[in-house]
Design a protein around this nucleic acid. Structure first.
Length: 494
RNA sequence: GACCUGGUAGCUCAGCUGGUAGAGCAUUUGACUUUUAAUCAAAGGGUCCCGGGUUCGAACCCCGGCCAGGUCACCA
């Protein structure tokens, strides 16, 4: 909330126009009069009353805190007003919203303080805010730290732990940065259905719901890939969407049932081209959110500066295990996995075995952003077969801090091949794989009308936000992470 | 889903070997118009997560459950 030197006092009309902290910092270097000096220009401000000690009170707004000086019997133009304000001050409670007007001075210790001459009440807090206090040595007292309360009552967390906002502000900067980058290239941000009659584009269990009027089953999307490709069929050269996706699976510090991906599809391009785009875009995102390409994540410093390391999956496995598996048969792969103590079972085919070896032996060791390319075809039913390497597809993932941050391929645009891949998925489904893809006839029909060669990309925005904000849990980059219902507390309060 | 840890006042926590439920902050009242986490005095505030069991007696021990965090498993 800004302080305004000229406007007439009516705090109910206050609008945020200048962050308080910025304003106060600006004043620290100026010579303000001490208490009793000739009054300065009048300012007005509104915010939360955060406690009082004698005549000194604290007022907080979205960006900072200002000390108020409330001298009994002096606030208001008339004696009646002054008495009313003295009574109001007695009734003020931590968390109440007030508006004040007055002039600034510096206290003996140099703190910028508003000498209040007029006061208005703006909103009541009925509940006690947990008050966090910090002393000069930086020791924190009575911190609001219970993770359950912080996540269930994020509004309280944000009020009493203002630093919590930082990660969310950075998250928005990330989105802004990507939009800016993709819009500058002329790609179109679009919206596609969240309620889908068939779920597709990924391997995951969906949430299921029902439309009453249409009397039909609908699924919350697990991905939007198949819809964006339909738009490529329709003639757009580049489309992207920040897509809230839903997967009915386990939860962990990396998994929330609803999460966000950006998906991007660009016609007449391939995965090599897309790798360059990812490097360039993510480097820009790091710069725009943190001002540097180097990001501290836990004990690691991660540098997003281009170019990133590139390994084929075979090269990565050879690099970390010393074993060249590129020419191996399924039996040899199984023996190799056992030799490396990678847990495998008899149902795993060649592709799955390779994926397991990579996941166990390589992924966690890839800390700096690294592209892994050329995946086994069995794991990638929507990716185009490799132009020269049999059994592989033109696919890459970027791994960072031991976790996948993006997935991309040259999209499969051969409708006959795509139908076969779907049918293989159907077989997997019949054998009990409840994450196997379902066959989407309408999507195949779209492909049968012809799709240009296309490069596709998905980036997990939550995972990327965790890295960019040095957050240990996805819950720290989601305002309202999914929680079980708090039945007892609800009943007790109602 | 498995294992570990935790759940006591609005918040942060203590509570010994099973023996009347505690502190600080916050709140209310009074005093003080002063400072820099915490002025002084007094007061109010509890389903000790829930349900059973053992016991003369349970916040504490046992059994079952709920919720959360962590680790692992799962995870395109």
């Amino acid at each position: 909330m800004g302080l305004d030197a000229t406007a007439r006092f009516d705090a109910r009309l206050n609008r945020p126009d200048q962050p308080l902290a910025e304003f106060v910092d600006g004043l620290r270097s100026t010579a303000l009069g001490h208490y009793g000096a000739e009054p300065q220009p009048r300012f007005r401000i509104a915010g939360r009353f955060m406690g009082q000690r004698g005549p000194f009170a604290k007022l907080r707004d979205s960006a900072g805190q200002l000390q108020l000086y409330l001298r009994k019997g002096t606030i208001g133009a008339t004696e009646e007003e002054q008495q009313r304000n003295d009574a109001l001050i007695k009734l003020l409670h931590i968390g109440d919203f007030i508006g004040v007007q007055g002039y600034l001075f510096a206290t003996q210790t140099g703190e910028v303080t508003l000498h209040v001459e007029a006061l208005t009440f703006l909103g009541k807090s009925l509940r006690n805010l947990p008050i966090v206090k910090t002393d000069k040595e930086g020791n924190v007292y009575d911190a609001f730290t219970d993770p359950e309360l912080r996540y269930r009552q994020r509004y309280v967390d944000l009020v009493v732990n203002p630093q919590v906002k930082d990660a969310f502000i950075k998250r928005t900067l990330m989105y802004n940065s990507m939009r800016e980058y993709l819009n500058a290239k002329g790609y179109l941000e679009v919206e596609t259905p969240i309620l889908q009659p068939l779920y597709g584009g990924a391997a995951a269990r969906p949430f299921k719901t029902h439309h009453n009027t249409l009397d039909m089953t609908l699924y919350l999307r697990i991905a939007n890939e198949l819809y964006l490709k339909r738009l490529i069929v329709g003639g757009f050269d580049g489309v992207y969407e920040f897509s809230k996706d839903f997967r009915n699976e386990g939860m962990s510090r990396f998994h929330n049932p609803e999460f966000t991906q950006i998906e991007l599809y660009v016609a007449y391009k391939d995965y090599e081209w897309m790798m360059n785009l990812v490097e360039e875009m993510v480097e820009k995102v790091a710069l725009d959110t943190n001002g540097t390409t180097v990001v501290q994540v836990g004990d690691q410093q991660i540098d997003f500066k281009r170019p990133w390391k590139r390994f084929t999956m075979y090269e990565a496995i050879e690099h970390y295990t010393g074993i060249d598996i590129s020419e191996m048969s399924e039996a040899e792969l199984r023996a190799t996995a056992k030799q490396l103590h990678v847990p495998v079972d008899e149902t795993m085919g060649k592709g799955k075995l390779i994926d397991e070896i990579f996941g166990e032996k390589c992924e966690a060791q890839l800390i700096q952003p690294t592209f892994i390319t050329d995946y086994p075809v069995e794991m990638s039913p929507l990716a185009k077969k490799h132009r020269s390497k049999t059994g592989l597809v033109e696919r890459f993932e970027a791994i960072c801090n031991g976790k996948e941050i993006c997935n991309s391929f040259s999209e499969l645009n051969d409708p006959i091949d795509q139908r076969q891949r779907f049918e293989e998925q159907l077989e997997l489904g019949k054998r009990g794989d409840d994450e196997a893809m379902v066959l989407d006839e309408d999507f195949l029909r779209a492909l049968e009308y012809g799709m240009p060669p296309t490069a596709g990309l998905g980036i997990g925005m939550d995972r990327l936000a965790m890295i960019m904000t040095n957050s240990n849990s996805i819950q720290d980059v989601l305002f309202f992470p999914q929680m079980k219902a708090e039945q007892r507390a609800e009943e007790a309060e109602s």
